[in-house]
Amino acid sequence: MIIRKEYKFYAAHRNEELADKCRNLHGHRYGVVCHFEVERKGSISTLFGDFDAKVAPLLKTQYDHALLINIEDPLYRTLVDHCERTGETLRLKRFTRPTSVENLAFILFGEITELGFRLHQLEIRETDSSVCVYTREDWVSDNRHFANKDNELLQIEAVS
């Protein structure tokens, strides 16, 4: 059985790899739709509040009103230096890859799974007309892909 829950958060980001408007720092009101796989045990499977008790705090503390930023983006070092110099704290959600909606889906899928839930699908709405639908199969495939890429980088660094 699938239980569907919706959440939202506001965050800024940029994609430093692009040569279009998305290279500029900008924000979104992200919509997150979780499709949880559950098994019925008696008259109910899982209380809706069980999802909210874990997913909502994750989004509120890690993502809401944060800057999603790739640690390889030159802007990241500038922001870290600023915080060290001024003592100001900024909510930075650090990515090890560009902050595309696909990479956001990959990261969120893993974090929600680590909360103890089995996700079937995750939808990330970046704008009113743009939605990334990300499945468990996508997550498994991306884990393999990124593990291979990370291993290739480690091998290159070891040779250098």
Rank of each mutant, 00 (worst) to 15 (best):
H28E: 02
T46P: 03
L47F: 12
S45F: 08
A66E: 01
T113V: 13
R77I: 09
S160H: 10
L115W: 04
I3H: 01
F51Y: 07
A66R: 00
T46V: 14
T61K: 14
R94F: 04
T78F: 09
L47C: 11
E84G: 06
E137P: 00
Y76C: 04
T127N: 06
K5L: 06
A158D: 10
R91S: 14
I124R: 00
L25G: 08
L122P: 00
K8N: 12
R94L: 07
K149Q: 11
Y7C: 01
L154Q: 15
I69Q: 02
N143S: 15
V131W: 03
E126T: 09
T96A: 14
E102V: 04
N70M: 01
L58Y: 03
I44Y: 09
I156E: 12
V133C: 14
L108S: 00
K149W: 08
A19C: 13
E152C: 09
L154W: 08
E102N: 05
D20M: 11
V159A: 13
F146K: 05
V131I: 13
T99A: 07
L154E: 15
Q121H: 07
V133A: 08
K5C: 07
T96S: 13
L68S: 02
I3K: 06
E123C: 07
A105K: 02
L122D: 00
L92W: 00
G110I: 07
Y76I: 03
Y30M: 03
T127R: 07
Y7R: 00
H120V: 06
A147N: 12
G87S: 07
V159G: 07
A105R: 00
L75R: 09
R97N: 03
R29W: 13
K60W: 11
N24R: 15
C83I: 05
P57Q: 08
K41N: 14
D73R: 05
H35I: 12
H120G: 11
Y63G: 01
L47M: 10
L154F: 12
W139N: 07
F36D: 02
G49M: 11
G31F: 01
V32H: 01
P74A: 08
D128A: 13
R4D: 10
E102T: 06
E6H: 08
K21Q: 15
T89H: 10
R4W: 06
T113W: 04
L79I: 10
I3Q: 06
E152W: 12
V133E: 11
E84Q: 12
T135V: 05
P74L: 09
K41R: 15
E111D: 12
T113F: 03
I124S: 00
